[in-house]
Amino acid sequence: MASQALPARGARLGRPVTAGRASAPSRRGHGVDPAVRAVVLALPGGDPLSTRRRSPVAAAVMWPLARHLVRAAGDDGLAAHVVHYRFRGWNGGHAHPAEDAEWAVDEALRRYGDVPVALVGADMGGRAALHAAGRPGVVAAVALAPWLPDGPEPEVEQEPVKQLNGRRVLIVHGTDDGATDPELSYRLAERAKKVNREVCRFEVHSDGHALRHHRSEVFALTADFVLGALMDRPFSRPVTDALAAPPPLGLRMPLAVGFGRGLH
């Protein structure tokens, strides 16, 4: 069995994200920063199977969204970190990124105290956000174009949803996504809605996996949802309607062009 041992390395939180760029590492030791009222953990994408080191490119993709969230929070005390995984892959039943996301939640609470945490992930990170949402301290999970298996995995019978109960959940998927199947995220959202009414899903029509064509709308939607969940800001009307509507309407809500203009 020793030949199957994985490399010994730990997950870590990236530098605190500021509205401008990643800041220098904190030097306050183990003290709690009273200015921080909430935390966002950004979870990058990855590969289905790989024990290589995490991808710096995938991590860098999450920085603009993390900066946008910090900027949108203004002076309300939001801390954001990109999570650096131990491994690049999900690796079947090991679900390494989900384990790392759970560790990151615990680490955020250790650093900042008893504050609400939101998990925001893209691609494989979206799946990790949903898996880790049941961790104490998490109040919301956002999955952007989540990677979900289209077949059985070792030691996994069905994608779990019970951990989402009591959390606010947003799933966003482009209808032209050729890398991750939008129908799979719809089916997951449909199952999740049965155990938790606070689930909504938006479809970005004519956009692909990276959601580049409607990036500003996706960023605005994510900020609206995350800041509403973390800081009790009022949700926009489309988010309120999506959360309240039964399937399929609330799970196939179209993201309107220009969403977010004039918000926050």
Rank of each mutant, 00 (worst) to 15 (best):
H205S: 12
S216W: 10
A140P: 02
P254F: 12
A145M: 11
R197I: 00
A210W: 13
V199K: 00
E217T: 05
E157H: 13
E190P: 01
L227S: 01
L164W: 01
E217L: 12
A140G: 10
G151W: 11
G228Y: 02
R135E: 13
P136V: 08
A129K: 06
A179T: 15
L227H: 03
R191H: 09
A143C: 13
K194H: 08
L251R: 06
L243I: 03
H213R: 15
P149S: 15
S236E: 06
V172K: 08
L130G: 03
R212Q: 15
L227V: 03
D181P: 06
V138N: 05
Q163M: 13
V169T: 11
A242W: 02
A145E: 06
D224V: 05
A220K: 09
L164F: 02
A244W: 06
K162T: 13
A143H: 06
D150R: 14
N165V: 12
Q163C: 05
R201K: 12
D181F: 09
C200D: 07
H205W: 15
G134V: 03
P160R: 07
V161A: 00
V169A: 08
V156D: 14
E203Q: 14
R237S: 13
P248H: 05
S236C: 04
V195I: 12
K162I: 03
G174Q: 07
L184N: 11
L130Y: 08
R237A: 15
K194W: 02
A141S: 14
A140L: 04
A141K: 03
D241N: 12
H214D: 08
N165M: 12
I171R: 06
G174P: 08
G174L: 05
I171P: 07
H213C: 12
E203L: 15
S185F: 08
C200Q: 06
V226M: 11
G228P: 05
S185I: 04
F225H: 07
K194F: 01
L255A: 01
V139K: 08
T240P: 00
R212T: 15
A210L: 15
R168Y: 05
A145V: 10
V169Y: 00
E198K: 10
V204E: 06
V138Y: 05
A242Q: 02
G228F: 02
E159Q: 14
I171Q: 10
V172F: 01
V226F: 09
D241G: 09
R201H: 07
R215V: 08
H131W: 15
V204F: 09
L243V: 03
A133S: 13
G151L: 09
T180H: 07
F202A: 07
G208P: 00
L188H: 09
D176H: 15
L148H: 08
K194G: 02
S216L: 13
S206Y: 14
G250K: 01
V195H: 00
N165Y: 06
P136R: 10
V169P: 01
S185W: 03
K193W: 07
S236R: 02
G250S: 06
Y186Q: 11
D150E: 14
A132S: 10
L144G: 13
G134H: 04
L148A: 07
E155H: 13
E153P: 01
D176G: 12
C200G: 09
F219C: 05
G166C: 04
T180V: 14
V195Y: 03
G134K: 00
